[in-house]
């Protein structure tokens, strides 16, 4: 158990190291000069002032130092939790802006991921090997997973939001509401939350249902299922064993898919102008605020790593085989 988790932690630590290095390296590797890009924002014809601005920027970014020194500086400031100052929302620190956006992203991401995983698994197990469901609803599942997250969002926003007028389509809450713990505000919050949640949920749901359906079919073909059936075990019992075995790969799948789901949440937020990290990334791009962009990148990577670790721990708890194996090797 300890060895397994230690190995995982090593991988995550390495990933974090790689992510920070990418973050440092990309602006320096790419063709073009980020400082010139920044200068072009406030371009003026005056040569002398351009030169002074250039020197100023080089100094603030620390670009006048040797590369290894810059790299070390990058880590030191990161260790202090300093991701720089936003250009777009000057002079707010990037960390602060990102922290205020994280709750919105989590509010979409957590329920959509967990509910779609649970519901998709249930439904997939239900549909497997029942001819009618298999042939009608599973193509639907494939179409759902093939839908780009933002397009489903656009369709829902247009159909249920603008044409039907049932739901608001932009922002976290209406312009007229005053944030507070009162009923009108909370219902406003929920009605704004619902459509982005629903579109995220639906796309993910299709994928889990299909994954589960395929796993169940494999499990029902396994020898233990045949044996149970030969013993005359009721169909429901066989299915229950199959489900318990099939859930484990689905759990691994959850870890593998986290990156995709997070990306989906970012895109969905952009459609609904939901003020989470995805919207911040869009603003950062539009305002060429590279500090904010890179800070958002690190936040997302750290979030995905933490979530992966949680899935690992759950896996150990859920799968009795890994547990006994580990205890055996420890003893």
């Amino acid at each position: 158990m300890r060895r397994y988790l230690a190995r995982k932690i090593l991988i995550y630590a390495l990933t974090f190291f790689v992510a920070v290095s990418i973050n440092w390296l990309i602006p320096r590797l790419m063709p073009g000069d980020p400082i010139r890009t920044m200068l072009s924002r406030g371009a003026s014809g005056d040569e002398a002032s351009m030169e002074r601005m250039r020197a100023y920027y080089e100094q603030t970014f620390g670009l006048d130092e040797p590369a290894w020194q810059q790299y070390l500086n990058f880590w030191t400031s990161l260790a202090r939790g300093d991701l720089g100052i936003s250009v777009w929302l000057f002079p707010q620190p990037v960390t602060e802006i990102l922290l205020s956006a994280v709750p919105y992203t989590l509010a979409l991401l957590l329920p959509a991921t967990l509910l779609s995983w649970v519901a998709g698994n249930r439904f997939g197990a239900f549909a497997a090997r029942s001819k009618w469901l298999d042939n009608t609803l599973l193509p639907l599942g494939y179409v759902l997973t093939a839908t780009p997250y933002m397009w489903l969002g656009i369709l829902l926003a247009w159909g249920l939001g603008i044409v039907a007028g049932w739901f608001p389509t932009a922002g976290p809450y209406g312009f007229g509401s005053i944030p507070g713990w009162n009923w009108p505000f909370i219902s406003d919050l929920v009605s704004h939350w619902f459509l982005p949640f629903a579109s995220l949920f639906l796309v993910a749901f299709g994928g889990w249902a299909i994954g589960m359906r395929n796993m169940i079919i494999y499990e029902l073909e396994a020898e233990y299922s045949t044996y149970l059936e030969a013993l005359g075990a009721p169909r429901r019992l066989v299915r229950r064993y199959a489900f318990r075995n099939a859930v484990l790969p689905q759990l691994t799948g959850l870890a593998v898919q986290l990156g995709t789901i997070v990306a989906g949440a970012l895109l969905t937020e952009i459609v609904f102008a939901y003020p989470g990290l995805g919207n911040l990334i869009l603003e950062a791009l539009n305002n060429r605020d590279f500090f904010l962009l890179q800070g958002a990148f690190l936040f997302i990577v750290v979030g995905v790593l933490i979530a992966n670790f949680i899935v690992d721990v759950i896996y150990v708890v859920v799968d009795p085989r890994t547990r006994t194996q580990m205890q055996g090797s420890a003893a």
Partner: peptide, 10 residues
Amino acid sequence: VLPALVVLII
């Protein structure tokens, strides 16, 4: 583990 789309955005 690295989220592909976010790396690509950067």
